[in-house]
Write a protein that binds this DNA or RNA. Sequence first.
DNA 1: CTGAAAGCGCTTACAG
DNA 2: CTGAAAGCGCTTACAG
Lengths: 334, 334
Amino acid sequence: MKKVSLKDIASKIGVAPSTVSFVLNGKAKEMRISDALTKKIRSEAKRLGYMPNQIAVSLRTGQSRIIGLIVEDISNNFFASLARSIEKELEVYNYRVVFCSTENSELKGRELIRMLSQQQVDGYLITPTPGMEDDIRQLIEAQVPVVLIDRYFPAVGAPYVMSDNFRAVTEGMKHLLQKGYKNIAFITVELDLIQMKERETAFREAMYKEQGISAPQIVKLPFQISAQDSVLAITDFLKAHPETDAVFFATNYLGIAGLECIKNLNLKIPDQIAVMCFDDHDIFRLHTPAITCLRQPIHEIACNATGLLMQQLSNLGSTIPEPPVTTLVIRQST
Amino acid sequence: MKKVSLKDIASKIGVAPSTVSFVLNGKAKEMRISDALTKKIRSEAKRLGYMPNQIAVSLRTGQSRIIGLIVEDISNNFFASLARSIEKELEVYNYRVVFCSTENSELKGRELIRMLSQQQVDGYLITPTPGMEDDIRQLIEAQVPVVLIDRYFPAVGAPYVMSDNFRAVTEGMKHLLQKGYKNIAFITVELDLIQMKERETAFREAMYKEQGISAPQIVKLPFQISAQDSVLAITDFLKAHPETDAVFFATNYLGIAGLECIKNLNLKIPDQIAVMCFDDHDIFRLHTPAITCLRQPIHEIACNATGLLMQQLSNLGSTIPEPPVTTLVIRQST
DNA sequence: CTGAAAGCGCTTACAG
DNA sequence: CTGAAAGCGCTTACAG
């Protein structure tokens, strides 16, 4: 396991390091190196257990073959699945992934970009936090490949992949209204990001168009609130609004907090209160009763995003694909 | 955002790159560089937005300041929490972490070690798969810092951190037996790893000592079984053994599969069947009824492991700490 | 057919 | 007080 270098092999055989490099990089033919020498070098490399030093390769070639993936929170089910999907996808292209979480902190987000940039990543896949616009713009200007995921900045010309949040929530609301729920509350997070806005707007429109309600119940929790405090806040709301017959949670972690509240308050789902959530989670499937949700096509999002990134890495123009389509998964909670 | 190098700063000011390097690395005093020059260099570096190229630094210093963390499955709650805890801990020491999952495949495990070694990681934190013994031994022989987590190989002298599996299961069993459960089944996975063996042995001993049963019900699922197939297998078992009044799941993913089975079979917890699980999970807390579990002290495991690794990185001998203590969390399922 | 040389961006012993 | 030079391990244009 002692580190073996090209030079070691070369000196062992009595040949120049460059020759070894050519052979081991499959350029023996191209460089018209004799079959005998090629074989000898190959077997010696194997015998010594040679593995190229990626750091040196990266420095020399200017390519690290590493992609920085910045998500909101890698411990969140949605982002974890997305991350794995992206990792698998990028493996195909022979790129590795470094994962990082912003936890929606602007400061942490920019620090991560700095850090990844020092590590010389070849490109970025980012679910940006509010306030990250300038950093993204700088990356774009510096011609660094970057793709935004799950949200984007309309003012910045960065390629992005975002599912059809508006259409999805509209479909979810249609389902709730069809089932006869009237006092529907929307629990969301105070986050200045486009996907959250689209979800909220869709909720507002549905309530207005279908019910004529122009100021529906919307609870906005501060972002970066702890899970515990979310539970308190949602509990307070439900206590104060006993007429609520359905809640629509705008993210899966809000939904999970909400289920805890409903459990504590001893409310029966769906008889006393119906529940619907944006994004799926194991917990929703296993919950009694199981929770209806809007499931984003994670694999498709991952493929689109990596595809866009690869286009940039190979200097092809990138064409924003159609928004991936979210599915309404009807379970027993509605 | 154009990449700025030491040389750029040096030539801008008309000074040697080495001088800039000294200043930026806080060695100005040591090298007796004038305050005036120092200030000038500092401000110019800032103005140009200089960030050192980590790849070059790594190549030159022989230190990547990256630790490879190989876990069984990063999407599993237990390992995800552990990974985050470790990441936070290592940040303090100014080390970054690269995460990888083996999915208990020996092949994948060794490939990951190879890959990380090419990336020149400075050390390893590994939850090894069966069959990885030789690879670990090689690392140790090559004097590469490595710490095993969650399990270890008795035959290999690698430092490790493993919680008190035997004591934990013994405590869990005591609780079940006290509650009066008799026909307790143990659902585990067919995996030749010490922590799983300890859990099983503790179960056997408890059943024998307390109940005089020398061949208790133990279901061993093949490792790498899909979640779906686990559900089928556990369902079959429960159907075939209606006398079972309690199940002890040896890992949290088995517990989650088990809950699905119990739900499908419409068995009431804990009246018809009690449930206890090794490792906690959000799902267990939120489940109705909530599930009793044995919770490993993740933070402590992370601290111990990083501590051991840091000792090795600074060439101190490493002293295996006491096994972290698992807590019995009693909920409504028992 | 093969080798010597330059250079990626840095750090550090050495020399003045 | 400051600079020139070597070298980390590789790749690749160049020369023969």
